[in-house]
Simulated scan of single mutants.
Amino acid sequence: ALASLALVVAEDLGAALARHSQLAVTAQAAVQSVAARAHGDLVRMAELLKACFLVGGGLRRTPEGRLRLSLHLISGEDALYLWSLQEDLEAQPASGLLDERIAAWAAEVDLQVSVAWARRQHADGAGDDARDLVRDANSALFARGWAEDSVRAALDFYRHAIAVDPGHALARAQKAIVMALAGNMGLLPGAAARAEALSEAEQALELEPRNSEVLGYAGCALADLGDPRRALPFIQRAVDTNPGNPQAWAALGATQLILGETERGIEQLQRGLRLSPDDYRRPVWYTLLSGALQRLERLDEAASAAEAACRADPRFWPARIVRAGIELERGHRAAALAALREAWHIRPCLSPEELRVWVRKRRFEALLAVWREARPLTPS
């Protein structure tokens, strides 16, 4: 029974990975055939499959009767472990839960492959392939956090990718959402930047109108650029095309929040987080979730989501602002002050205008007073 389940997990994980447009994934039947010929030699197996990376793992029973899954990303050129995951499941996991976990594992493998590939390209001095440049752009934000310099670096990679391959729809879609989010955060101001983001989103949708990733990113960009009703059908199509796409679910939730559908927005954001619990985009999703829960006066849950956003990325300063606003509403002024001081430490140029983006209107003046107290002393 365990061997049969392992085969199902391997097959479904391969299919889930294949839905990520940046990855070319070998069919599981071919992998099994080559594995038999390679006799455990992973480097030879990768050579025969013409694969840069291998995904391996196993299932076993724990002494408590649960299932323990291990998952590894392995370099094809030297059989070194690049990343590993271990997770315990129920002894007989429900089909729906297993599907959800497989989608989450696929999203995490996709991220880890992007990071590993960017490191390899950097070490080799390569970088003229559009797909590699998109991975470099993602790594710039993942490694350095949201700030003016990291946004500029990511946009340079996206522009280079588009120059290399003007038909690369995902580069345009990701560039659009990064520009839209950065503009809303105050990191990329100006009407010209918004117009460029809108143009890239429109072109991405024209190039790849059926690709889930492109639909999710470009649709979310349209919503963040001020047109959520037009964005909604594109994002819904992204979810319908690939229900395992966590970004599409998060984009759907964020768009529903903009439209005032708070309960539904919370549900979809939570689904995106369940599908990709270790995603590098978690800080943004948790911060949006926290604000939505605060809107419904579910302050304890909102505080937990804000804390999760802070843990997910120690450099994501908007999460500290949202957390400060929630703590102030809960009557915890000292905690609000501490959160704002953390935001100041991460972003010394933090302004009241940036504060206003993340705080409820009726609480802005109260938080502004705490902000003035939190502001570090400067020489006169």
Rank of each mutant, 00 (worst) to 15 (best):
R330H: 02
S33M: 10
G219C: 00
L48I: 15
G260L: 11
A251W: 04
L187G: 06
L275K: 03
G65T: 14
L54Y: 06
S33F: 03
Q92H: 01
P63G: 11
R44Q: 13
E297L: 15
F157Y: 13
C310K: 12
F53D: 04
A106F: 05
P379R: 04
L273F: 11
A303S: 15
W344C: 04
T378A: 13
E196I: 10
E87L: 09
G58H: 15
R68I: 01
L232W: 07
D12P: 02
N211S: 07
A103G: 09
D313Q: 06
A305W: 08
L141M: 13
K175I: 04
E47Q: 14
Q256D: 13
V113K: 07
A46Y: 07
G76C: 04
R281Y: 09
F157A: 05
R66W: 07
A302W: 09
R282A: 15
P228F: 14
L377K: 15
I326T: 12
E47W: 03
A3M: 08
A197H: 06
N242K: 06
I346Q: 10
R61G: 12
E47D: 15
A305M: 11
L296T: 12
P93H: 12
L367A: 08
P209D: 01
G183F: 03
I321R: 12
A221C: 12
I235Y: 00
P209C: 05
R37K: 14
E77S: 15
S4Y: 05
S70F: 02
A195H: 05
S84H: 14
G56N: 13
P63Q: 10
Y217A: 10
L85W: 07
W285R: 06
W317A: 14
D165G: 08
S290D: 00
A51V: 06
E202I: 06
E87K: 09
W285D: 08
R101L: 14
A116G: 04
P166K: 08
V31E: 09
A305S: 11
S150V: 09
Q32K: 13
P352Y: 01
Y280K: 12
P314M: 00
H72D: 15
R37Q: 15
W285Q: 10
P209M: 01
P277D: 06
R68S: 01
R360T: 06
W285G: 00
Q256R: 14
Q236H: 11
P209I: 02
A251T: 13
A180M: 08
W105T: 01
V359G: 07
S33L: 11
E301G: 10
I102R: 03
L98V: 05
